[in-house]
Every structure is written in structure tokens, then in C-alpha cells.
């Protein structure tokens, strides 16, 4: 589904190379985790894939279902089925959560040539999905992420994911700032979305999240590259021994 081939990325405004030939493939239905020390380029990868400004691709490619992502506008990538759950979801005062969600859902449907959801249908679906994530109707009415706790913001990200039904979900440190209960809720939300035609790329610092969202493959990223890939046991090894051994092994 997602294929990243020899991706090189630098910061637009500085002469600083962040990704230095990253190659990664996430087949349909699989959950891949990326772990790595601070500064290895994990968040950059998520931003470059979803189309944030400020990065320059100097080589390589990234495709979703065969279509090159890198030339597309962010909204077109979303319509193509890509979703990024932000590490720090943005607060947007004055714009209702529901209005935002409905606009996003219908814009994507429109971009894909599908009929827009009526407000009645939308309301029914969003209420049901919000209830599963223990998001109250009151929270749905509030402005986007305003006055939300850290956990509420992350649940709101998962709600957006559930409503938009992307094919490829990237979770950027979704576990950061979550207590145990919130992490379980978020993980349950993600697990409920797992399906044979949907894939996940889970970026995390901690193995703990991977107890809840069980990955098929774990990648270790360092200095802009994947230096090792393996099964879930690789995450346990990192938890136990840190990155030192792996980095030394990779030279």
C-alpha cells in the first residue's frame, strides 16, 4: 500500500538533510511501528508524507497504492486515503468540531466523486463513533480541540480517523501525554479500525503502546534511515537495552 523508496529530504530553509535514503513498505492490512532516538527524522517522515510545507524532497519517492504522494496537495493526499494523527493536534477556536468534521468528510467524498453525507446521516454516524471513543456530545459541539485535555485531543484525532476512513493511517507519537486509561481507549479505537485493506504506520518512543496496538513489523530509524526491521520482539529489545546496541551494529 505505502511504498517509500530511497527518500531524501532536507529542510527548505536550512541546509540540513533529515531523511537520507529511507526505504519502507507497508503492505495492506499490516501495522508497522517506527521507533528511534530523538532527532532520527520520524516526525519529518510523517510530515513529508502528509504534505506539510518547509521540506524539500531531494531524492526518492513515496507512493500510496501506486500514486506518487509527493506532488499532491495535502488535501488530495487525504482524499487519496492518507491520514496523519498529529502529535500535537491544533486548536482552532471559533470553528465547531462537528462543522470541521463534516466539512472534511464531505470534501473528501466530493474529491472521490462520492455523494456528500446529509447532516442527518452524518450526525448519526459521528454520534455512534464518538460514543465508542467516549467523546461526549458536548465535546463534539466545542471548537476544534479548544479546552480539550491531552487525552481528549488524541481521542479526537482517532475520531477524525474513524470518520474519514483512510486507507493508510500514520500515528505520530499518539501515545505521548496519555495516561494508561486514555492509551487503552485510543488503542481500542485504532484496533477497531484494523482491517485487511487498511494499514498503519505507528511512530512511537515507547514499546508500551505496542502492547496495545500489536505491530506486524517494527522498524528502527536512526539518522534518516531505517537501520533494522524485525518483529514485535525488536521493540522489546529496545525497551530493554536502549538503542545503543542497534546503532553500533548498524555502524
Amino acid at each position: 500500500m505505502l511504498k517509500i523508496n530511497d527518500l531524501h529530504v532536507k529542510l527548505e530553509e536550512e541546509d540540513k538533510q533529515i531523511l537520507k535514503g529511507l526505504t519502507l513498505e507497508v503492505p495492506a492490512g499490516e501495522v508497522h511501528a517506527i521507533m528511534g532516538p530523538n532527532g532520527s527524522g520520524k516526525s519529518t517522515l510523517s510530515y513529508v508524507l502528509s504534505g506539510r510545507d518547509g521540506y524539500e524532497v531531494t531524492g526518492g519517492d513515496a507512493t500510496l497504492d501506486g500514486a506518487s504522494l509527493l506532488e499532491m496537495e495535502p488535501e488530495d493526499r487525504a482524499a487519496a486515503g492518507l491520514f496523519l494523527a498529529f502529535q500535537y493536534p491544533v486548536e482552532i477556536p471559533g470553528v465547531g468540531n462537528m462543522t470541521f468534521l463534516r466539512t472534511a468528510v464531505n470534501a473528501q467524498r466530493k474529491a472521490r466523486g462520492e455523494a456528500e453525507l446529509s447532516s442527518g446521516d452524518f450526525l448519526k454516524i459521528v454520534r455512534a463513533k464518538a460514543a465508542e471513543l467516549q467523546i461526549s456530545p458536548e465535546m463534539l459541539k466545542r471548537p476544534v480541540n479548544v479546552g480539550f485535555s491531552g487525552g481528549e485531543k488524541k481521542r479526537n484525532e482517532i475520531l477524525q480517523m474513524a470518520m474519514l476512513e483512510p486507507r493508510m493511517c500514520i500515528l505520530d507519537e499518539t501515545d505521548s501525554g496519555l495516561d494508561v486509561d486514555a492509551m487503552r481507549l485510543v488503542s481500542d479505537g485504532v484496533n477497531a479500525l484494523r482491517s485487511p485493506d487498511r494499514s498503519f504506520l505507528v511512530i512511537t518512543h515507547y514499546q508500551r503502546l505496542l502492547n496495545h496496538i500489536q505491530p506486524d513489523v517494527v522498524h528502527i530509524m536512526s539518522n534518516g534511515r531505517i537501520i533494522k526491521s524485525g518483529g514485535p520482539e525488536l521493540a522489546l529489545q529496545v525497551e530493554e537495552n536502549g538503542y545503543g546496541d542497534l546503532l553500533a551494529e548498524a555502524g
Binding site: 495535502p74 488535501e75 491520514f83 491544533v90 470541521f100 472534511a104 468528510v105 477524525q160 474519514l164
Partner: peptide
């Protein structure tokens, strides 16, 4: 970017 990444046009 946050809004656009959800598919909301520019």
C-alpha cells in the same frame, strides 16, 4: 496544514 491534512480544501 492541519485542516488540509483532513481533506479540507485550501
Amino acid at each position: 496544514f492541519y485542516l488540509r491534512s483532513r481533506g479540507v480544501p485550501m
